[in-house]
Amino acid sequence: MRVGLFVTCFNDTLFPQVGRATVSVLERLGVRVEFPEAQTCCGQMHFNSGYRPECVPLVRRFADVFAGYEAVVTPSASCAAMVRHYHHVVDPAVAVPKVYELCEYLIDVLNVTDVGAHFPHTVAFHATCHSQRLLHIGDRPRRLLEAVDGLDLRPLAHPAECCGFGGTFSVKNPDTSTAMGIDKVADIRGTGAEVLASADTSCLMHIGGLMSRQGNPMRILHLAEILAATK
């Protein structure tokens, strides 16, 4: 199967280790990963902020770049949701490539829950809104994490609640965004976990930014980085 990695502009620029971890997990499972270098951005920021015309070339570029791949895998639930739910809204004529969020690809396509990872730490997992309510990936992240050797998963008290990032919401409504984030931070700290993980780096950047400003940063990893870890 020809698999194209959509690393996302966000991970590409700010969190390249997430892309490297995704490649590492997929290759360990025998997948041949290609990275089409013409890729850029799914257009989510423009779309969600109301900049529709600016979004159109990004949506068309995405379709062109990933045409011919049987599967596109991305380590971002919100970007996967953007492609799956909204690319045809932006341009009804576009042929939307088949995109999988990493957990979906591992469990639904490769039929794997134990990816052979070893990570002897306590972990709190933040189930992001778009992963749950747009993609409906459900308990897939939990199943993957529970199969990791040595990992101790600590549940949040309010797992379904938004962290307050919301893309440009975080800067257009900074006070409300921060109030939501502070509550999420308290919930995460309440788990006593050493590590915070999620399937979206964007939410993690917001939560981590708040923790860092509180002077009490926490080790924060994308789910792919945990799945890539071995003995």
Binding site: D12, T13, L14, F15, Q17, R20, T178, G209, S212
Partner: peptide, 18 residues
Amino acid sequence: AWFGTRDLPAPPGQSFRA
């Protein structure tokens, strides 16, 4: 608006595409 309450990790030395 971002930096009022949040830090940001410094961009890495090397992007994924690099």
